[in-house]
Simulated assay, not measured.
Amino acid sequence: MAASGITILHKCKLTPITLEELMEYSFYALYQLSYLADTARFGQSPDMYSDWDNSDEQREFVINSHLWKTVNFIWEYAEKGMHIEKLNEAYVNDLLVDLYKWGASCDSVLLHDGSFGHETLEVREAGSKLAYKFLARIKLDLGWNIDHAFPAASLYPMTHETKLSTVEYALLAGLSHVGAVRNEASSKSDQLITEKIGNNILIPVEVARHRLPKKRKFVSTQGVNYDSAN
Rank of each mutant, 00 (worst) to 15 (best):
A40T: 13
S50C: 10
N72K: 15
I84C: 06
E122M: 10
G127M: 05
L99D: 00
R41W: 13
A90I: 15
W52R: 01
M82N: 12
R124P: 00
V62T: 04
A131R: 01
D56N: 12
Y49M: 07
A40D: 13
I63C: 02
Y91P: 02
V71M: 04
F134K: 09
E60I: 09
A104F: 08
E85I: 07
E89M: 14
L67T: 05
S45T: 10
Y35H: 07
D53N: 11
V97R: 15
A136N: 06
A131N: 07
G117A: 06
L99A: 04
F42E: 15
Y100W: 09
D53F: 11
S55T: 14
R59K: 15
H112R: 13
N72P: 02
S115P: 00
N72I: 14
S45E: 10
R41M: 14
Y91K: 09
L111T: 03
N93Q: 08
S45R: 11
W102Y: 12
G103W: 03
E57K: 10
V62L: 01
T39G: 05
L130R: 01
W102M: 10
L121Y: 05
G127I: 01
M82T: 06
A126E: 05
R41A: 15
N72H: 14
Y77F: 15
S105I: 06
D38G: 11
V109M: 05
L111G: 04
T120Y: 03
K101P: 00
G43K: 08
Y35S: 08
Q32K: 03
A90W: 14
N88G: 13
A136V: 09
G43S: 12
W75P: 00
V123N: 04
H118W: 11
Y91E: 13
A40C: 10
Q32L: 14
S45L: 03
V97L: 15
V97A: 07
E125F: 06
A136C: 07
N93W: 15
K133F: 00
G43F: 05
